[in-house]
Design a protein around this nucleic acid. Structure first.
Lengths: 240, 240
DNA sequence: TGTGTATGCTGGTATAGACAACTATATACC
DNA sequence: GGTATATAGTTGTCTATACCAGCATACACA
């Protein structure tokens, strides 16, 4: 069942196995999974190891515990994990659309005061400014401007951005942690209407995202304007 | 330091103590906290207990770990915890505004097909429908319609809703778990413009929230239209 | 008929110890 | 001066065990 020699920790292998069995409908929503002590015997590990695996799945929302009764499968979610920090590309693929890109500009300029404050840098330091139209099934979906501190990654090229920026960031040894998002509604101005091929004053969904590494340094600020007629923002939140 | 007789678990007391010391700036952002073995001695508990406390704080985003180096304080967040499932009332208080309420209607009616599907019930079952204008500092902020399955809480009154609905739900023995939110932009229609005292075709932020108990049963569907000129939706998301 | 109560299950908390993997620093050597 | 190498400190993983608290059931007793 488990590979004790594997470099993958055993609690992780157990997680994957339980996920697989839920996916195979071996366990059904509302039913309980075997007790922790039973899993201890099944996987031949200690109970603490089982608990580490189960805790992670509870954290993800796949399982829930009830003291004195057992651990149960949660109802299936409406979509494959709404939560989590994803790129436009991942987001569109998940929705079954073909993601596309049209680069409008790629420049390095002085940050200026408001931007510098958000990105935790000095106003006279430089940032990359990348402006793009984002496409879904070849139709304009959003107008997006990304700001990245130049000092953090002086080797960055338009290609890195166009391919997988997050993968590039992680290849530099940063670990992507969390993001703060502000979402608001607005009316399309002339330049937005033109780029997105929509009427003037059509509804837009504006999303501003500030993304941080795990040690709390901001590394990108993204300002997007999505066509309201084609895009809904989906999120999942948990009670503390 | 810790009270070993307390009904509060020791890992929880340790969490609170570390939080307090961060708040007091005894530990500063970017600095490391004492090593797990040091904390083991300080609190006179086992290392696993310390790890349980620290793990929870890492989960909350207050700390982050680096293998082989230590555990560090994360940078302060821009606001007091953006994440988490909160009511309109809590949300407004957090923003420093005085929350208010104007009840438009409180009815029980047949769910009908689309609603029933979302709430996991039959189309001929009944739901509460509560329509309200939400105020902030006495100014209309949002138009809100809430649907609640009648069968789940047949004793519900307008007062429960007006005071603290979530507290009432939990007093019935349900545990509030997670919510799925869809956020979109729209233009104000006539009835919305009137209720919110804004021009026709002004921008609106539409939020639809489906809230579940921990065992996966949906118990409320809320459809809100917020004035875009006065409201931004803030969220925090984490990388998986 | 009902009502305790004992029992055996569940998850929750906590201990003490072990070794692995990773990081930084000091030391010895060339 | 530069480069291995040892070493000590860190978090990561895992074991084996113990007792507590909540829950359901069966059974004895009134």
């Amino acid at each position: 069942m488990l590979n004790k020699q594997s470099p993958l920790p055993m609690y992780y292998q157990i997680e994957e196995d339980i996920k697989k069995r839920i996916a195979k409908q071996e366990f059904l929503p509302g039913e309980s999974i075997p007790s922790e002590r039973a899993l201890t015997e099944m996987y031949d590990v200690s109970r603490m190891t089982v608990r580490q695996a189960v805790n992670n799945l509870v954290q993800e929302g796949l399982l829930y515990r009830e003291k004195g009764k057992g651990t149960f499968i949660a109802e299936a979610k409406m979509e494959q994990s709404l939560s989590g920090l994803t790129s436009f590309t991942e987001d569109m693929k998940r929705r079954g659309l073909k993601p596309g890109n049209k680069l409008l500009s790629f420049e390095v300029k002085e940050a200026g005061s408001p931007l510098a404050k958000k990105l935790g840098m000095e106003a006279d330091e430089r940032v990359y400014e990348v402006r793009r139209v984002r496409l879904a099934d070849d139709v304009p979906m959003a107008l997006e401007t990304t700001y990245i501190p130049y000092g953090l990654m002086p080797e960055l090229t338009a290609e890195h951005i166009q391919q997988s920026f997050y993968a590039y960031v992680e290849s530099l040894g940063f670990t992507i942690g969390r993001a703060e998002q502000a979402i608001e509604a607005a009316l399309a101005e002339a330049y937005q209407a033109e780029a997105l091929e929509i009427p003037l004053h059509a509804a837009l969904l504006g999303i501003e995202r500030l993304t941080f590494t795990t040690d709390g340094r901001p590394f990108e600020l993204v300002q997007s304007a999505y066509r309201a007629d084609r895009y809904k923002f989906l999120a999942e939140i948990h009670r503390n």
